[in-house]
Design a binder for these strands. Structure first.
Length: 590
RNA sequence: GGGGCCGUAGCUCAAUUGGUUAGAGUACCGGACUGUCGAUCCGGGGGUUGCGGGUUCAAGUCCCGUCGGCCUCGCCA
């Protein structure tokens, strides 16, 4: 071993011991006769001192040290003496007086310092990811990620789950997200697809009798990226047989509690709260509400249907909704310019044509449009909103979908901007009773809300024939701080029911057989009742880390355009390789 | 596919709204210094303002295109 201790180990009880430590030169302070080096590894920072009167040769060597050099130091642990203790370091009470110095590897001048005052731009950080990953924050995040994986494995292992791997090279099923394709050399002109999730395999494992399965699975989706979305990501994938919805939720409640206990040492109150889809859409406009703050949506359509304000009146008249938020004490928080430009622009991104707003003054409304509402209407609105003087009332008048999307976005903005919650807190809940299908008006058909293997709520079987849009699915999402943190369902295990759903989705038996024949075939050979769920690992690490960017919790993430700046991927390949694969590249003319 | 923000020294930023030789901090190089911990002090080198056009007497600044990064709508069963 090149070292006896790490840079985070040494304390006052190691005094006078002879030690060897290794690490990167984080900082150096050359005083001529004495040189101080802050030596860093992932465990911490320890100060090393090199003195002229102690060993002139290594003191001179030490003067040559620069940022990010990798060195080994042997020496003696000394107390720094009163007045020289550095309270900012865990090891701040001691230092290592160097007796020997080995430069294990001289570093080029780094493009940035991992613990510098300001963070360089993301492009540079991704290009030099090996330096960025030396930053304390990223090292903490990856440790957190490990802890969560560890807690997950321990939790499932204790309960007789089997960790089973499923293939990365699979079959393309042109459903949902775009697939990443991998050409086959042996099968000319044919392609594998990388899995969007192990969904079909895990259901087949249930048919095969492995009734408790889990896997930390890598998934791939060739869609556009977001701050919380990468083209390849990891999910904690679970499937169980002989269970019902409540069992599944209970198991995952336990997992969440185990993760929180492992990471934060806190106890979570179980069961986690459950809300129905209809409930949260009405109250928060979103199926993934941020429950760290309240700020509910309130509908006033009935109160303004007869008002003189055309926008409200016409919206209600044509079946739309007038809904809004009462922002406590915020009447003077936002200028007219911000309301009319920034906030209107924000809701505009979600299709809202405008944003109406009032201040509550003396129990009445005040704004440029207040004159369109009579005293009675104004009083009724203030009362419905539970408004008090100094509150800001904001409204969206639009169809249900737009009003939900716009108000949800507005609510999230206000929650963050007005600091309505503790950013470190976590509020987790279940959303249940999703609709089985949603209407796709453009294509004039029903689309699966979750996926087409999702079973039907037992109370709604009759509705399949009469009113499919009202049928609830046995599906469930776990939502944390406004993120979809897990999603799953009880599956269909009866081929006849599966056909019923295919019929509704307008997928004829032949097409179904062609696309999912292997699953349908499996269901015919003794499929047990089963269900499952998948938790987005990256998002959970993000949530625990308090970060709002998924790149901060992935060791080697990709950019917004899905490239790896360190590797230079994706890249063009040799003509030879393409020839082997019978692939001809034809670029669009520019 | 659409919208928005950004790109100036190795890095983080500035440049009085189009006007002299593009500055500062830090990093880097040289020197001084035996108790610092954002060390300090003295000196030095470092720029095709992402790239390509255009407007203008004059462009880091304005216009068009392009490349790259970030955010976002659509998309993500």
């Amino acid at each position: 071993m090149l070292r006896t201790h790490t840079c985070g180990d040494l304390r006052a009880d190691h005094l006078d011991q002879s030690v060897a430590i290794c690490g990167w030169v984080d900082k150096y302070r050359d005083h001529g006769g004495v040189v101080f080096v802050d030596l860093r590894d992932r465990y911490g920072i320890t100060q090393v001192s090199f003195k002229l009167d102690n060993a002139s040769e290594i003191q001179q060597q030490a003067q040559e040290l620069r940022h990010e050099d990798v060195i080994q130091v042997t020496g003696t642990v000394l107390h720094r003496g009163e007045g020289n203790i550095n309270p900012k370091l865990d090891t701040g009470e001691i230092e290592v007086l160097a007796k020997a110095l080995t430069i294990l590897n001289k570093s080029r001048t780094p493009p940035f310092e991992p613990n510098g005052e300001s963070l360089p731009n993301e492009e540079l950080r991704l290009q030099y990811r090996f330096i960025d990953l030396r930053r304390r924050e990223l090292q903490e995040n990856l440790r957190l990620r490990h802890q969560i994986c560890k807690a997950t494995r321990e939790y499932f292992n204790e309960q007789e789950f089997l960790e089973i791997e499923t293939p990365i090279l699979g079959r393309s099923t042109p459903e949902g997200a775009r697939d990443y394709l991998v050409p086959s050399r042996v099968h000319e002109g044919a392609f594998y697809a990388l899995p969007q999730s192990p969904q079909l395999f895990k259901q087949i494992l249930m048919v095969a009798g492995y009734d408790r399965y889990y896997q930390i699975a890598r998934c791939f989706r060739d869609e556009d990226l977001r701050a919380d979305r990468q083209p390849e990501f990891s999910q904690i994938d679970i499937e169980m047989a002989f269970i019902e919805l409540d069992d599944m939720l209970g198991i995952i409640d336990g997992l969440v509690a185990a993760m929180v206990k492992e990471v934060r040492g806190e106890d979570v109150t179980l069961p986690l709260p459950r809300y129905t889809h209809a409930e949260v859409m009405e109250k928060y406009g979103s199926d993934k509400p941020d429950l760290r703050f309240d700020l509910p949506i309130v509908e006033i359509s009935d109160l303004v249907a007869d008002s003189d304000f055309g926008v409200f009146k016409n919206t209600v008249g044509s079946g739309g909704h007038v809904r809004g938020l009462c922002v406590k004490g915020a009447a003077d928080k936002y200028s007219r310019r911000i309301l009319d430009n920034d906030l209107k622009g924000l809701v505009g991104e979600y299709g809202a044509k405008g944003l109406a707003y009032f201040k509550v003054v003396g129990g009445k409304l005040e704004s440029s449009i207040a004159k369109f509402f009579n005293d009675e209407q104004q009083t009724a609105i203030v009362e419905r909103m539970q408004g008090e003087d100094g509150d800001l009332l904001v409204y969206i008048a639009d169809n249900w979908k737009v009003s939900c999307a716009a108000l949800a976005a507005l609510r999230n903005f206000l929650g963050k901007d007005l600091e309505l919650y503790d950013p470190k807190s976590m509020q987790t809940c279940w959303i249940v009773d999703f609709p089985l299908v949603t209407r796709n008006e453009e294509e004039n058909r029903w689309d699966a809300e979750h996926h087409m293997f999702c079973s039907i709520h037992p109370d709604d079987v009759e509705l399949m024939q009469t009113d499919p849009g009202k049928v609830r699915a046995q599906s469930y999402d776990l939502v944390c701080n406004g993120y979809e943190a897990a999603s799953g369902s009880i599956r269909i295990h009866d081929p006849a029911v599966q056909q019923q759903v295919f019929d509704l989705l307008n997928i004829d038996p032949e097409e179904a057989e062609r696309r999912f024949g292997f699953l349908l075939e499996a269901l015919r050979y003794g499929a047990p009742p089963h269900g499952g769920i998948a938790l987005g690992l990256d998002r959970w690490v993000m949530l625990f880390a308090g970060s709002d960017n998924i790149r901060d919790v992935i060791a080697f993430p990709k950019t917004q355009r899905a490239s790896d700046l360190m590797l230079g991927a994706p890249n063009e390949v040799d003509a030879r390789q393409l020839k082997d694969l019978h692939i001809k590249v034809e670029l669009p003319e520019s």
